[in-house]
Each structure stands twice: as C-alpha cells, then as structure tokens.
C-alpha cells in the first residue's frame, strides 16, 4: 500500500489561499487505509478549512474509489467543474491524475506521499519497498536491504549498527541484522556468502520515469504503446 500523511494545516491553508471554490477530494483506496485521505479525513479537513477560511470561501467534499483511475475521476466531473481548485487527498498519483483529467483546474496536494509500506500496528505504518524495479528479496530472506537499510547496502551491514539498530535512524532496526537473523532461522546463511554484484539502477527511477506495458491487455487496437 502507498502510505501518505496529511500536510500540516498551515501549509494547506497557505496553498489554498486565494481560491474561492475548493473541492476536497478523497481517495477510497490507499489514502483511506492509511488514514490520510478517506471520507472521514476529507470531512474533517473540509470542516477545518471552512472554519479557517471563513464564509467567503466555499468548500465542498467528495471521495472517489481511486483517484488513479479516469473513470472514477469522471464521477466527480460536476464538482471539479464547479471548483477553482481541487485539494486532492490522494497520493501524488491522484493529484497528477486529477490534473491530467481536468486540465483547466488547479490540482493541489493535501498529502505528502511517504512510501510503499504496511500497517505495522494500528496507527503505525512503515516502509517496505522502494520500487527499485529489480527485486532481490530471494537472496535476503524476504527482507529488503534497499528499502530498509538506510544506505541500501547489498552485502552486509555498514558496521555502524548498534545493538541491532541503524546508525542513521536509531529507532529503526538494522536491516542486515534482521536479514541475518532471518536467514539463520531458515538455515540459509549460505546465501550471505554470495556477493551481490553492484546493481544496475536503470530499472529503478534512476533510469527515468518508468512504464509497464502489457500488449496482451490492450483493449483498443490503436492504443498507443
């Protein structure tokens, strides 16, 4: 799941200053599950903005199933058409999808998209995947050194780990300690003896914006590939 967090209200207030008609648009998928932009958060933020901006600014609210699908965005065409600006409580994809679908409307981010991760415990989410584009979890006991090691080291810890904690962020565990523990439990410490060669980072974002194309799934023959 994509994990996001609402921007500080101060920042949002600054961002929406000057607009007279504001649509707060929630997203019913990832942003809902991480309590950043579901229907309830939309309602809370809308109430907050109404109070903060006064009677001169009209604030409406809507939530779609997923902001990253054109068809769902089409469902709020009327609301978007009415608004001067859409404050999207979706991830960065949602904000851009709104902008793409409605070129004439200002699309504003209400959230900071944080990472791809999971719900560790209610109220706590943590990062698990960096979307590097070339998964090596088979070699590291199912624990990703790219996402979970602060330095994305591929062949063991940096030497700065203390009591199993990362030297960069002492409140998170050292990924390589976790990998070692896990491989020990699985009886596969032999995997650690294999050197993982230097990575080709092109499949990651380093190679520029990425795209996945499955020609077999095209609906229209003329769809651009």
């Amino acid at each position: 799941m994509i994990v996001a967090q609402q921007k500080p209200l101060e920042e949002i207030r600054h961002m929406v200053a000057g607009f007279r008609r504001l649509l707060v648009l929630g997203c019913g998928t990832c942003a809902t599950v991480c309590f950043a932009g579901g229907e309830k958060e939309v309602s809370l933020l809308a109430t907050a903005l109404r109070a903060a901006l006064g009677k001169d600014v009209a604030v409406e609210e809507a939530t779609v199933q997923r902001q990253c699908e054109w068809e769902f965005l089409d469902q709020v065409r009327a609301g978007v058409g009415w608004a001067d600006a859409v404050l999207s409580l979706g991830c960065g994809v949602g904000v851009q999808a709104v902008a793409e679908r409605y070129p004439g409307v200002v699309s504003l981010p209400g959230l900071n998209t944080k990472f791809v991760g999971l719900t560790e415990a209610p109220g706590t989410w943590s990062e698990r995947c960096l979307a590097c584009g070339d998964c090596l979890l088979d070699r590291t006991g199912g624990i990703c050194p790219i996402a979970r090691c602060s330095k994305s080291l591929l062949n063991g810890p940096c030497g700065g780990a203390q009591d199993g904690h990362c030297e960069i962020s002492p409140d998170i565990p050292c990924a390589w300690v976790l990998i070692h523990e896990r491989l020990t439990r699985l009886g596969r410490t032999d995997l650690l003896e294999e050197i993982i060669p230097a990575r080709d980072w092109r499949p990651s974002h380093a190679g520029g914006p990425r795209r996945v194309v499955r020609p077999d799934l095209r609906v229209l023959a003329e769809q651009e590939v």
């Binding site: 944080k114 706590t124 962020s169 409140d171 998170i172």
Partner: peptide, 15 residues
C-alpha cells in the same frame, strides 16, 4: 512527534 519514516496518527492507535 512522528518518526522519520514512520507515520503515527493518533486516531489509529489501538494500544
């Protein structure tokens, strides 16, 4: 207070 890479939201806590 929120951790660097950990998002904590008061409303979601169970413990």
């Amino acid at each position: 207070a929120a951790g660097e890479r950990t998002v904590k939201v008061g409303t979601g806590k169970v413990a």
